[in-house]
Design a protein around this nucleic acid. Structure first.
Length: 288
DNA sequence: CACTTGACCTGTCCGC
DNA sequence: TGCGGACAGGTCAAGT
């Protein structure tokens, strides 16, 4: 469930921790998690310097000095965790992963010159990491079709309105989960933003006014910025690049709050299914 | 073409 | 206590 705020939090952490470091070794044995062959890894990863860490939608990109990049999608349970030399010391929170890796979910271990390690963990093996020429990233099918970045200045309310209306006959929740409409929204922030805009997630897009859609635009940006400030949502396995959990779930208004009172009107939050996803909403604030 | 559903995985939780 | 089944949800492929 890493969505845009979680992936961005990991990106910022990795940026601080790995840029300028040199890759010394790579251990991997699961072709689904890391499909590259050993000779490509030897030629374009070993001895390379890490130049930059970028993000587009929910995809991370680690650029190497060989003009190759690691393209990474964490999907639901993926983690990128860096262990510096301090892992040999004490003082980490008890729920931190530091010092406990690799474990059985570790799919790739990257050795850094000087003894540090970067781990790609993924319990469910839905996520993947691929090594490819940096210039080929834009040609990957997902990158070609993915919609605009919601937090960039160039993403205006009118652009959101126009793009959401491409999905006129689907539910508004399905429309904002569609990565070709806009990038980065997943189940958590879809529910949170729809609560903020007082829109029932199952409403058909065609039934929404322009004002409602523009309110939703504001709420999507609000919850994503708020979550980045909180270091993301750790309702299950998500951790940042230091193996630490995020705190957005302490702030969540509806997500995983079924049975608890609405923070706006006091009604009991309900859970249903919309767009084949568990969906949380307030039955009074968000009328069908 | 627009839209929905199932598959991919593994760990956890619930009911019997 | 063990065990089967439902559930978790990002994206793609297959189906309506």
């Amino acid at each position: 469930m890493p969505e845009l705020p979680e992936v961005e939090t990991v990106r910022r952490g990795l940026q601080d921790l790995i840029v300028g470091k040199v890759i010394e070794s790579v251990d991997f044995d699961n072709p689904k998690s890391f499909p590259n062959d050993a000779s490509t890894v030897d030629s374009f990863m070993l001895g390379s310097e890490i130049i930059a860490v970028r993000r587009r939608a929910k995809v991370l990109m680690i650029d190497l000095s060989t003009k190759y990049s690691l393209m990474i999608h964490l999907k639901m349970t993926g983690q990128m965790v860096y262990e510096g030399a301090s892992r040999f010391g004490a003082g980490h929170p008890s729920d931190s992963l530091i010092g406990k890796l690799p474990d059985r979910s570790t799919r790739v271990s990257i050795g850094i010159a000087g003894g540090d390690k970067l781990f790609f963990n993924d319990q469910r093996k839905f996520g993947w990491m691929r090594l490819l020429p940096t210039l080929e990233i834009p040609e990957v099918a997902f990158m070609k079709k993915v919609g605009p970045e919601p937090l960039e200045d160039s993403f205006t309310p009118d652009i959101f309105l126009e793009r959401v209306k491409k999905r006129l006959r689907s539910s508004i929740k399905a429309a904002i989960l569609d990565q070709s409409v806009l990038a980065g929204v997943g189940n958590i922030y879809a529910d949170e933003a729809l609560w903020g805009a007082k829109i029932y997630p199952g409403r058909v897009v065609a039934s929404l006014s322009d004002e409602e859609i523009k309110l939703l635009y504001d709420e999507i940006r609000y919850v994503m910025n708020k979550s980045i400030d909180e270091g993301g949502s750790s309702n299950s396995t998500y951790v940042n690049a230091k193996g630490e959990r995020g705190s957005y779930m302490d702030f969540a208004r509806v997500f995983r709050r079924q049975g608890q009172p609405c923070k706006r009107c006091g009604s009991i939050i309900e859970k249903t299914r919309v767009a084949a996803r568990g969906t949380h909403f307030c039955p009074i604030c968000q009328l069908p």
